[in-house]
């Protein structure tokens, strides 16, 4: 049998692991007899590996919120194709129209008081869905390095944060990460129970005049979110749990933070 001559396409396919099995023997024989061909296959494989090495870390980068919103559809997204300056202009115009001088956070909180879904809970739910759904890499720093995690997040947020201990509710700390917020970065702590259900607690600074918002509950795209604002910090606890379960975990979180504040003499 006279096999077809080995082509460049064969070599590429062989190096990429895509060669039809019927051609493999012919290519391997050619490689065995021609060191130059073998070199070129080896170079392709090295370049593939190096390119993946180089570009894979991009996958770990923090995702801008406008893209998270765009993935959830037009109800959540800015106008398709709208660019940052357009959005800022719209934001400025809307702020003027609403006669608000304290910015978008306050506007969100006001809307929330009217019972409208807010960007805050929506983002908390979307962020939760994004990272809780990532089986292998839900967090950037894992629980065994909790101390480093807390130090890092406190530094980035500009105030001390802690990962509450939820072991009593069956949820163990998985770890945490920094995520984008509107104006301020947000700390995210991820927890998981024996059934592999995940919860996330998100904390960020929140400039609100008038201070506090009691426990609120919302369902966003199937994710339950409990949130509250206290001491200029907003907290959002998100998970695919029912309201009662989520609320009981929320109370534990709230209680621990209050105890911590008391200990610090607030």
């Amino acid at each position: 049998m006279n096999p077809l001559p080995v082509t460049d396409a064969d070599l590429n396919a062989y190096a990429d692991g895509q060669l039809a099995t019927s051609r493999v023997a012919a290519v391997e024989e050619a490689l065995a007899h021609d060191p130059a061909l073998a070199d070129s296959v080896a170079a392709v494989r090295r370049h593939n590996a190096a390119l993946r090495d180089a570009l894979d870390p991009w996958l770990e980068e923090q995702i801008p919120e406008r893209l998270i919103a765009a993935a959830a559809g037009p109800a959540h997204a800015a106008q398709p194709g709208a660019r940052r300056w357009v959005m800022s202009a719209l934001a400025a115009a809307a702020t003027l129209l609403l006669g608000l001088s304290i910015g978008w956070y306050a506007r969100d909180v006001d809307l929330e008081r009217d019972g409208t879904p807010t960007t805050f809970t929506r983002q908390a739910a979307l962020t939760h869905a994004l990272y809780a759904g990532d089986v292998n890499r839900p967090v950037e720093v894992w629980a065994p390095e909790e101390k480093r995690l807390v130090t890092w997040l406190s530094k980035r947020l500009g105030f001390p944060v802690n990962a509450p201990d939820l072991n009593g509710t069956g949820f163990a700390l998985v770890g945490g990460r920094l995520v984008a917020g509107h104006e301020n970065p947000t700390a995210l702590f991820m927890y998981e129970n024996a059934d592999k259900q995940r919860l996330s607690l998100q904390v960020r600074k929140q400039r609100v005049e008038g201070g506090e918002v009691a426990f609120r509950y919302a369902i966003e795209n199937g994710v339950g979110v409990f949130y509250w604002i206290e001491d200029n910090c907003s907290y959002a606890l998100s998970g695919n749990l029912d309201r009662g379960q989520l609320l009981s975990v929320g109370r534990v979180v709230y209680g621990q933070l209050a105890a911590l504040d008391a200990a610090h003499g607030k």
Binding site: L55, W58, L59, E60, E61, I63, L67, I68, A71, A72, G73, A75, H76, E112, G115, T116, P117, T118, T121, R122, L126, A129, L130, G133, D134, R216, Y217, A218, I219, E220, N221, G222
Partner: peptide, 28 residues
């Protein structure tokens, strides 16, 4: 309490695809 009235998440999981889309867009 606010319950979102929007359609549920789209069939394709667009959120999960974002990192790869960003990488390919950057290549382009």
């Amino acid at each position: 309490m606010s319950v979102a009235t929007d359609a549920p998440l789209p069939q394709p999981d667009l959120l999960a695809a974002i990192p790869r889309l960003r990488r390919y867009a950057r290549v382009l």
